[in-house]
Design a binder for these strands. Structure first.
Lengths: 317, 317
DNA sequence: CGGCGTCGATAACACCGGCTTATAGGATGA
DNA sequence: TCATCCTATAAGCCGGTGTTATCGACGCCG
């Protein structure tokens, strides 16, 4: 019945003291104000303005409306400003989820970039393996997920809604074979997976284990999984002690390094693709977009260094 | 840019969880909501709603708008209710001005009537003689004035804006001649003003004095004004002591009575009309209208008693 | 005292927001 | 796989809300 425009007009009349001045202050013409007041009067069923000769004065009811204009318009402006802040990246929150090995490498740099560019955008970060993070994304508990898919599979495999997700490739990650330094194959340039059919294996997360089994199957054997751990530091430790061999993505090796472990390229090579996943809607939210851009940048700067030679490890045992 | 309707819609979506339910709760159809959201989104330049499969979820910016809806809509409702209260006489303020002799008679009863009918309407009352009260009315410091005009003159005489005022006759008041009981004319049924040409006169307010001079002029003499006071109690005292004679409106005599004073009808008769004056706009303000009605009622109940015999005085010396 | 400037009211008109109905497309669940 | 429910879109209609043009009235000032 009464809207903000009406209140704005009443306030302008109260402030300016005439319809014409109110119209000027609001950027309207005088008849617009005249009609607006008449509409308000017939809607409220009350006289709002007293026409005294050639100027006007608000009645009690008119003053009531003018008085309410302040708070209402201020609140509307506040809402608008708050939304504008989100749109202008002067505010905003991104709930990011990434799997552990991404958390250690891609994420910190991206977070830093965002923080530097948009100090008021806050990113909350949770570690989660791809299946969980995609579920969280669907559940609305997450805005951006960093997932990975082994060559030939799809990130959202198992999920029917392929176009419910917006998938951005970040990094192409080679999977290597970690063996103890004293292992027979340690000196080879490349290793065939079949060469290690007899070795005990150390498997990581369920998906990684699935990948291992799949590769081994292609190589004609069933791996003897002696240990299972999602902690790559532990994997390296186990390998270094000669307790088994493991598949380790290159990305991990940039962070976790062990002097008694050798990471060899495999033949045939296996790769995984690290992707950022969001929804089409969320992908257009400025803060999410900015984070995604930072992740892309972070990934491209990481992939510029090919990893034949291992870079200086950031974490060493 | 953002209006109350938009906020209402966003809040409904937040509350109901779907466009369709929000539409139902607001009494709209579903496409109306769909379009409203789209408009809001392109106006704010931000994604407000995340379309997840077949239901929707608000983004951070959308939640911001939904969150602001409460205060804004509450304030609007408050404004509306406040105006409705004034329109419905559950509230309201009337600034009444009346000249002294009206204050003593018409006004108290009218105030009582209004108070009884509309307990929440507050009437502030100020004593003022007609020229002042009309000026206050013009100045916006008064909503309703009780004025009087002697026969043949106009309430708003001197004021050019005849139709700037809305004038309601309340009472027809006869002007009588107050003389001491022992005065020579005291036993006459009616008195000619000329019979008292030689007496000292007691005059009241400027306008009353003007009226006296005018009547005396018609009777062929210039009154010897020995005393001037606007206090009719004092007038009665002066008359009772034989210090002079005075014109006194009948209305006064209902309140102020003195056993040693006789109030005689004049020949020719002189009357004054007591009127309520407001502006056309203010006359449509419910509280003012109600007060005016009460005054009319109060006046008609007073005039039903013709004053040949004086009623029991409410104030006696 | 009469003209002129200014203010508000009104009429006529145009535009666009905003709602409706009708319909299509897509997701979910039995 | 079908039924159902949800959202998106198209097309149309109405009314609110703005404009310009004009009038009438008040008030100032020469």
């Amino acid at each position: 019945m009464i809207d903000a425009a009406g209140l704005r007009v009443m306030r302008a009349i109260a402030d300016e003291g005439s319809f014409t001045a109110a119209a000027a202050s609001l950027g309207y013409t005088q008849p617009a104000i005249s009609q607006m007041v008449r509409r308000l009067e017939q809607r409220t069923g009350t006289v709002l303005v007293e026409r005294i000769g050639r100027n006007v004065r608000l009645t009690e009811a008119g003053l009531v409306l003018a008085r309410h204009a302040g708070p209402v318009l201020a609140a509307l402006d506040a809402a608008e400003e708050e939304v504008a802040a989100i749109a202008g990246l002067r505010s905003g929150r991104v709930r990011l989820m990434a799997f552990p090995s991404a958390s250690a490498t891609l994420v910190p740099r991206a977070l830093s970039l965002v923080k530097q560019r948009f100090p008021d955008v806050s990113i909350t970060f949770t570690e989660a393996e791809p299946p969980e993070s995609l579920a969280a994304l669907k559940a609305g508990e997450c805005d951006l997920a960093i997932a990975f898919a082994y060559e030939g599979t799809d990130v959202a495999r198992g999920e029917e809604d392929l176009d419910a997700f917006e998938i951005t490739p970040l990094l192409d990650d080679e999977v290597r074979l970690a063996v103890p330094r004293q292992h027979a194959v340690a000196e080879q340039g490349t290793v065939h997976l079949g060469d290690l059919a007899a070795d005990p294996w150390i498997a990581g997360c369920p998906r990684c284990r699935g990948h291992l089994v799949q590769l081994a199957d292609a190589a004609g054997f069933r791996p003897d999984v002696a240990y299972e751990t999602e902690d790559y530091v532990a994997v390296m430790g186990l390998v270094s002690e000669g307790l088994g061999v493991a598949l380790i993505p290159d990305l991990i090796l940039r962070t976790v390094h062990h002097s008694d472990v050798v990471a060899l390229p495999m033949e045939p090579a296996s790769r995984r693709t690290i992707t950022a996943v969001t929804t089409p809607d969320l992908g257009r939210v400025p803060a999410v977009r900015a984070t995604l851009d930072a992740l892309i940048e972070s990934a491209s700067s990481q992939s510029t260094a090919p990893t034949t030679r291992l870079p200086e490890p950031t974490f060493s045992i």
